[in-house]
């Protein structure tokens, strides 16, 4: 159960990337996602790839582990490549097999689109690998702060998010425990017809819901007992602070973008 939760799971560390303010990381990644779409020649693609690879190295995480983390996406990247290979009919014909033609333009198109896809996934996974979910929540709350003026319940949303994060491991444990208890009573989730398998989920879901509701009720009571009445008059312990590291990172990042745009056609 726990084993397939490692996709992009936070790995604590003390690398440069780990130490950046989560807001810096969020801004960089968000803009990077947009900028990738502006790449239009091999120089600009190469520049962005280089940037992404340097980021990977800076996290000091094992490259194999990061690549394994995006395993589910590999298939999509490959699929995108094949699709463009077949559909695009531009440029000279490279190969012709049984009526299918593969054009030079198709290879190029396929490569660039899947590279783009790969860069997006890679860089986004770096965010979740080096930033704890709670930091991401804080960063989102801070960056969305201005929306409070137009009555968006930013604080409540952030609290909901942090409580969900806090209870994910608890609920995963619970799921595992109940599915093991039912497996011991002869439930088999892995074999049998689709209909059987759907029925086999009921003994897992019902106890899970009951326990989640019970937890929610007890948690609400505990929060009330500790004086929680919404965001009004609340102070905050968590405080994000830009450090000199963040300013440097931002300056470097902006120069990288400027170089990127000068490399475009």
């Amino acid at each position: 159960m726990k084993s397939f939760m490692i996709i992009g799971q936070y790995v604590p560390g003390n690398s440069l990337i780990h130490r950046l303010d989560p807001r810096t990381k969020l801004i960089v990644i968000f803009t990077f996602v947009i900028i990738v779409f502006f790449a239009n020649n091999s120089w600009s693609y190469g520049w962005l790839t280089l940037f992404a690879l340097i980021l990977v190295l800076l996290t000091r995480l094992r490259i194999g582990y990061i690549l394994k983390g995006i395993t589910p996406v590999w298939f999509l990247i490959f699929f995108t490549f094949i699709l463009h290979l077949i559909i695009t009919k531009e440029g000279s014909v490279l190969i012709e097999i049984a009526g299918f033609t593969i054009h030079e333009g198709g290879v190029l198109q396929g490569l660039t689109i899947s590279l783009r896809f790969f860069l997006l996934v890679l860089v986004t996974s770096l965010l979740t690998l080096t930033t704890s979910p709670m930091e991401i929540t804080d960063a989102i709350e801070a960056l969305l702060g201005p929306l409070k003026k137009i009555k968006v319940p930013v604080h409540e949303l952030a609290l909901m998010m942090s409580i969900s994060l806090r209870f994910i491991p608890t609920l995963l444990d619970e799921t595992e425990k109940i599915s093991k208890a039912q497996a011991s009573r002869g439930v088999d989730l892995r074999t049998g017809s689709i209909k059987d398998r759907i029925y086999a989920i009921v003994p897992l879901l019902v106890p899970l819901f009951i326990s989640a509701f019970k937890r929610a009720e007890e948690l609400a009571m505990a929060m009330e007992a500790r004086g929680y009445r919404g965001s009004e008059g609340r102070t905050k312990l968590r405080k994000l602070q830009f450090k000199s590291l963040d300013f440097m990172a931002m300056i470097i990042y902006v120069s990288i973008i400027i170089i990127f745009f000068s490399l475009r056609n």
Binding site: R166, R215, A222, Y228, G233, R234, T235, K236, L237, R238
Partner: peptide
């Protein structure tokens, strides 16, 4: 139940919760 009264994502966040509710300065 120790599990169902732990609001914060870390120990210090959890201790802070009641203080934040009371508006105690950081």
């Amino acid at each position: 139940n120790p599990e169902n009264q732990f609001v914060g994502t870390t120990v210090r966040d959890d201790v802070a919760f009641g203080l934040e509710n009371r508006g105690i300065p950081r």
